[in-house]
């Protein structure tokens, strides 16, 4: 019994190790990267991404971002914007390690959230659509909270909170870009 279980365990490990090679015919890449940033940006702009731009937050915006993130924000944020849409690639630490997420904002609402790189030891659920789809169409209310609820995942509370912080920061920064002004002009 004992020997059979050990042999079975080793066989299982070997089979799992071979999976990516058999599927792709090539060695597995750094497998925590689920989608790279340039691919995500291209996808969000239907294959024609605009040039990268930089937002240097004003003093007031930095204060608001600090309130959302719970720590001093970066000095500048890179983003891609066109036609009332902006795409942000952000990093936030959940428990130990940074989670890299892509957040797309259109007309001041969240169009899409995806985890690009996940480095945490727990909270793997946040990288899948059953979790990220909860962010769709949410906006930032007057209290700078998301307009709808995003349910927690047991054992992944810190990763969930990191994802919420990134979504709120992207919504807030979108307002400071010319793309938000484009939306206003179109509305008029």
């Amino acid at each position: 019994m004992q020997m059979r279980m050990i042999i079975g365990f080793i066989t299982l490990c070997a089979a799992l190790l071979c999976l990516p090679m058999a599927a792709a015919g090539a060695p597995a890449q750094a497998d925590q990267v689920y989608i790279n940033a340039s691919t995500y940006v291209a996808e969000r702009f239907a294959g024609e991404p605009p040039a990268q731009e930089t937002l240097w937050p004003s003093s007031d915006l930095r204060t608001q971002l600090k309130n959302i993130l719970g720590h001093a924000p970066s000095l500048r944020f890179k983003y891609w914007g066109a036609g009332g849409k902006t795409v942000w690639i952000l990093d936030e630490i959940g428990k130990d390690r940074p989670i890299t997420a892509g957040v797309t904002i259109t007309d001041n609402r969240i169009e899409d959230v995806q985890v690009l790189v996940f480095r945490e030891s727990r909270g793997w659920e946040v990288k899948y659509e059953f979790f990220t789809s909860q962010f769709a169409n949410l906006w930032l209310d007057r209290d700078q909270q998301l307009s709808g609820k995003v349910d927690n995942i047991t054992g992944a509370t810190l990763s969930v909170k990191a994802m919420k912080r990134m979504a709120k920061a992207a919504l807030l920064m979108h307002r400071a870009t010319p793309q938000a002004q484009t939306t206003l002009a179109d509305a008029r």
Partner: peptide, 9 residues
């Protein structure tokens, strides 16, 4: 060790 995208040992 990450064996692949969804499996660890």
């Amino acid at each position: 060790v990450d064996l692949n995208g969804n499996h660890q040992a």
